[in-house]
Amino acid sequence: MAEVTTAEASEEAHATSLGLSNEKLAMWTLLGSECLFFGALISAYLIYYTNYNGQPEISPALFDIPFTSVSTFVLLMSSLGMVLALSAIQRGDDRGFRIWILATAIMGSVFLSGQIYEFTVFVNEGMRLDTSPFTSSFYVMTGFHGIHVTVGVLMLITLWARSMTGKLTSEHSDVVENIGLYWHFVDIVWIVIFTAVYLVPYEQVGA
């Protein structure tokens, strides 16, 4: 593989053995690792989702699927916004980039607000972190995902701000691409969580 890079190129810091960017390689490595983070959380949920600690009324029956479907849809569409933003900045279309990156950040924020609202409703119905293994694993899993979304939104807003002050141009599209990878990953984790937690007819398989 190293043969593709020339000897003189290796003198430059950015030329690499694989011909790939360090940052992007690191991002994919991190995402490989993140699979194990979320895998552990989802596994704990799958092990405990029928375990109600003697309070069967606090169960997945509380989930408001229409509501969550809407916020899931918003998060899914934010991924579309992200690719459109990337494609805009790669074309050098700064205005398009700003529109789409801001839209993505807003959609992410809508999802987060939905999650906070959902948590509030649940807590009011008596579903607390310490109610049962089911609730513990639900909150810790979705909360951990929520933290990831928050970090993503912060990065997106930063990108938008940098672009507004003219400090982010098509030269830096690789930064946008890497943050985009992170954003899409957070989205695919939710695709899995949405099915595993909300959609699977637990009352049929739960027995």
């Binding site: 694989l18 992007k24 390689l25 994919w28 995402l31 490989g32 690792s33 993140e34 699979c35 194990l36």
Partner: peptide, 13 residues
């Protein structure tokens, strides 16, 4: 290489 890194993690998980 990106595919390998990601699929490796996903597969182990």
């Amino acid at each position: 290489w990106f595919r390998r890194l990601f699929v490796f993690g996903l597969g182990v998980a």
